[in-house]
Design a protein around this nucleic acid. Structure first.
Length: 601
RNA sequence: GGGGGUGUAGUUCAGUUGGUUAGAACGUCGCCCUGUCACGGCGAAGGUCGCGGGUUCGAGUCCCGUCGCUCCCGCCA
């Protein structure tokens, strides 16, 4: 008989009755009847009921074992009588009569319970993550994550991609997010950086003659956290393709994502390939966001012209100053009491808007403070533009174009919530395409890259030379699912001449470009294939599939919002010796002095 | 860096207009119980109400400051 087990805790069935079995696991729950004792023994695979009564030599050992004690139970598998069968457990038709029990590891009194549905604070859960991870939900999430990654690898491999590992210690990149730095011992005063993404490496791989690369790649960014953004590190399905157009990239990755969501989505409907494509400009107009949730049926429309020069002075004046008006429909809401509209107006003010105007289309006429100031033609114009019917109302956002577009997106989401219009039970994908290559910095007035400086401008060199930079689009695209940005990608700029020119428009001299991106630029001078790719976020994919609102629910050992690992106590101070080896002298802010004090050993 | 929420027993929470000894559930410990599966019953221990200051005869409750956790904005090419 095996030292620890002949079966897992999820394995035994009615047909095993009569066998001698040995199982090991954690004491999940105990039901102590005084002279009869049940122990639910748990491992990754399931739960098996063990039983003993006072006639057993091991009764006292089991009785003394606290929950989460690790024990090994040996005994006979017996069928349960019809009244005592538990249909909730796959092992519920049998139980193990404990003949021998070995305590493999005692458990102290628990700071948080593993059994049960009790909710615990994040702080508690992260401090005792090893207990938290034993719980049913976390076991399921983490196992799902593993299966998703295995399936992704298989699907990528089947599509002709090969997996490589790129360096973790690399150079700081001057663009983008804040880097995590690692001091160099051999080169005093110099630093490695952890990669924000394997971006330059994968482009170098294409230049090195590899045709289709992917990697489940760790990425490191020293930026603040959000519910869907873990601080510090995260994983991407990083991939890149040589001799590929934007369509090729879409065709390669769409079936992988659709397949994953079909495989692990528990039957929830998934957008079928090809995913709809929405231009950036269209997304900002119709959804007020570059990551629209297509489950939300509401569409924003522009009604600036209906208000231009109207006697609704507030909007008319704003329009004369360059403002625009966006309309968001609220189906079947016209009969709501005044408080419904007031509440939304208050919400808008709390969120930084001047207010939230509205028209109610009711009993064949338009009502509300705005409608009183508009003539019939304008009211009808708005009704037509928004597709509103009698019984609907329409809300208005009036501001400068950027602000109005963005806020209309918030209103769209808010109204969807209020009217309960979201079908949560499906996965709706889309591509956002044609991102602008450049934008004007509002503070400095200067032109800068709006997203990725390495993207190929649409129209290539000709566009850079002859087009207003602010009208140039890039071959840059995002995949969005249910309002979550899963990835961004691009057809890259593999031509040094075009790259110099693009950087010149953004205000960089050739020397600057060479100093900052010399490695990759140099590689491109010796024959680089046109190439492109993307990098869907693994954590976010699993988060959507697990239906979790927070990314930490699908990460084994996440850090807190302030980027601390409560379990490992990272970050932590280091010894003087370590600092000396790295030629580092600390220059700490005064108030942090006590917290960041250096260990003296 | 800014804004919102929150902090009371080991844990999850309740705690009224400021008023006597700060409660419940789960857990822990003890006793009883031979068919439970969220077992049941009886009992006990367990609290500097995050921390510091203030107002008051009196503060878990009101005020100021501060710290932690969390959500959002900024940030995330």
């Amino acid at each position: 008989m095996h030292r620890y087990r002949t079966h897992t805790c999820g394995a035994l069935r009615a047909e095993d009755a009569g066998k001698e079995a040995r199982i090991s696991g954690w004491v999940h729950r105990k039901r102590d009847h005084g002279n009869l004792l049940f122990v639910d023994l748990r491992d990754q695979y399931g739960i098996t009921q063990c039983v003993a009564d006072t006639s057993s030599a091991v009764f006292k050992v089991l009785e003394a074992a606290r929950p989460e004690t690790v024990i090994c139970v040996t005994g006979k598998v017996v069928p349960r009588s019809a009244e005592t069968v538990n249909d909730k457990l796959p092992t519920g038709r049998i139980e193990v009569v404990a003949a021998a029990v070995e305590v493999l590891s005692e458990a102290a009194v628990l700071p948080m319970q593993v059994a049960g549905e009790q909710e615990y604070s994040e702080e508690m859960r992260l401090t005792y993550r090893f207990l938290d991870l034993r719980r049913e939900k976390m076991q399921a999430n983490i196992l799902l994550r593993s299966k998703v990654i295995a399936s992704i690898r298989q699907r990528m491999w089947n599509a002709g991609f090969v997996e490589f590992q790129t360096p973790i210690l690399t150079a700081s990149s001057p663009e983008g997010a804040r880097d995590f730095l690692v001091p160099s011992r051999l080169h005093p005063g110099k630093f490695y950086a952890l990669p924000q993404a394997p971006q330059q490496f994968k482009q170098l791989l294409m230049t090195s003659g590899f045709d289709r690369y992917f990697q489940i790649a760790p990425c490191f960014r020293d930026e603040d956290s959000r519910a869907d953004r873990s601080p510090g590190e995260f994983y991407q399905l990083d991939f890149e393709m040589a001799f590929a157009t934007q369509d090729d990239v879409f065709d390669a990755i769409t079936p992988v994502l659709a397949g994953i969501f079909q495989e692990f989505g528990n039957g929830r409907p998934v957008t079928t390939a090809p995913f709809p494509r929405i231009t950036y400009a269209d997304a900002m107009l119709k959804y007020g966001s570059d990551k629209p949730d297509l489950r939300n049926p509401l569409l924003v429309s522009d009604v600036t012209e209906a208000f231009r020069g109207s006697s609704f002075g507030l909007f008319a004046k704003n329009i004369d100053k360059g403002g625009i008006v966006r309309a968001i429909p609220a189906p079947k809401s016209a009969d709501n009491p005044r408080s419904f509209f007031d509440k939304l107006n208050d919400w808008a003010r709390e969120n930084g808007a001047g207010g939230l105007g509205y028209i109610q289309y009711k009993d064949g006429e338009a009502r509300g403070p705005i409608a009183k100031n508009l003539d019939a033609t304008r009211v009808a114009q708005i009704k037509a533009a928004t597709g509103a019917n009698d019984g609907d109302s329409v809300f208005f956002v009036c501001d400068q174009p950027d602000v109005a577009a963005k806020f209309s997106g918030l209103v769209r989401t808010k109204l969807c919530d209020e009217l309960n219009l979201l079908d949560r039970n499906k996965f709706m994908f889309c591509w956002i395409v044609d991102f602008p290559m450049f934008e004007r910095n509002k503070d400095t007035g200067l032109i800068e890259f709006s997203h990725n400086p390495f993207s190929m401008p649409q129209g290539g060199m000709d566009a850079l030379l002859n087009q207003d930079p602010l009208t140039i689009k890039a071959y840059q695209y995002d995949i969005v699912c249910n309002g979550v940005e899963l990835s961004s990608g691009a057809i890259r700029n593999h031509r040094p001449d075009i790259m110099y020119k693009a950087f010149e428009i953004a205000g960089y001299k050739n020397e600057d470009v060479e100093a900052r991106f010399g490695g990759m630029l140099n590689a491109f001078k010796y024959g680089a294939p046109p190439h492109g790719g993307s990098a869907p976020g693994i954590d976010r994919i699993v988060m959507l599939l697990a239906d979790e609102p927070n990314i930490r629910e699908v990460i084994l050992f996440p850090m807190t919002g302030r980027a601390e690992d409560l379990l490992m106590q990272a970050p932590n101070s280091v010894s003087e010796k370590q600092l000396r080896e790295l030629y580092i002298k600390l220059n700490l802010p005064k108030e942090a002095g006590s917290k960041a004090e250096v260990k003296t050993n």
